[in-house]
């Protein structure tokens, strides 16, 4: 299995310059502290996999970056500049696109309408359905999503995997800089999973920053350039994927530490005590 591109590490952890840095992100819901002082770096031109057990806080972190939740404390920098991402619109203006774990599709709208929700093409004040339909079907064809009967069918009538494909297509059809995929392949068939993983690698090769959340370690090791591990709301380790093997990753996810670091690796940068 081909893994991360090897080579001299740049100033940034891996890949290009760091596109997004989150520092000291705290988030609580009532009595539940979902994130404690989380630091995270997302370099351009690299795939960062965020790993962790169920309830570790991965989705909450995703939502903090994409403007759904406002963090209680902490700072997010975008290309080195501090930014405040208060709304989903702020995030998409910066160039952040997200596939949410719950997909966030409107069941009563059709595929095209969902893919363009919030960014409809308008001509002379009216929706330009023809252009939207053409662009949507082009993106779906490129993702090999051919199992849907009609892109004008309501999302309610799609299977779970088809819905996931639509959500992925919705996120990648915009000219974005950072794409976050929260368990994008959980419900996908073999072919569609392959397409999404290939797409992730293609986006990386085109210089985008990609963050993938997945419980499938095969997928993680296949696409990850960097791995970051959350455990019970704390970032326990993050570093180049080559620093991890299966066993150490599982150790980090379950216990927060690992005695089995592959020999010769340096201390993971960004580890938080």
């Amino acid at each position: 299995m081909s893994t991360a591109p090897q080579g001299a590490p740049a100033t940034a952890p891996q890949g290009g310059p760091t596109l997004l840095t989150a520092r000291g992100i705290d988030k609580h819901f009532g009595a539940v502290q979902a994130l404690y002082k989380v630091d995270l770096d997302l370099p351009a031109g690299a795939v960062t996999c965020l790993c962790g057990d169920n309830g570790a806080g991965k989705s909450v972190m995703t939502r903090c970056i994409s403007g759904i939740h406002a963090p209680d404390h902490g700072e997010i920098c975008w290309m080195g500049e501090p930014v405040s991402i208060r709304t989903p619109r702020d995030a998409s203006h910066l160039g952040i696109e997200t596939v949410f774990q719950d997909l966030a599709l409107a069941d009563n709208l059709d595929i095209v309408q969902n893919m363009f929700l919030g960014r409809e093409i308008v001509r002379r004040g009216f929706l330009d359905e023809d252009s939207m339909e053409r662009a949507a079907s082009k993106t779906l064809a490129e993702l090999r999503v051919t199992s849907v009967r009609s892109i004008r069918q309501p999302v309610a009538s799609l299977s779970g995997g088809q819905r996931q494909s639509v959500a992925v297509a919705k996120a990648v059809m915009w000219n974005s800089k950072l794409v976050i995929l929260d368990e994008p392949t959980a419900a996908l068939g073999v072919v569609q999973t392959r397409q999404v993983l290939d797409l992730v690698l293609r986006m990386r090769d085109n210089g985008l920053a990609v963050m993938v959340i997945s419980h499938n370690l095969n997928d993680v090791f296949e696409v990850a350039d960097r791995i970051a591990v959350l455990q019970l709301g704390r970032m326990v380790v993050q570093g180049p994927a080559s620093d991890f093997d299966r066993q150490s990753l599982v150790d980090y996810m379950t216990t927060g530490t690992s005695s089995r670091r592959p020999a010769g690796s340096s201390d993971p940068d960004g580890a938080v005590s």
């Binding site: 363009f116 960014r119 409809e120 093409i121 308008v122 252009s131 662009a135 082009k138 993106t139 490129e142 993702l143 990648v172 059809m173 915009w174 000219n175 974005s176 794409v179 290939d198 797409l199 293609r202 986006m203 090769d205 085109n206 985008l208």
Partner: peptide, 11 residues
């Protein structure tokens, strides 16, 4: 609305 399939265009 910019429609840009750039991330996909490699293939």
């Amino acid at each position: 609305a910019r429609v840009d399939a750039d991330p996909l265009s490699a293939e």
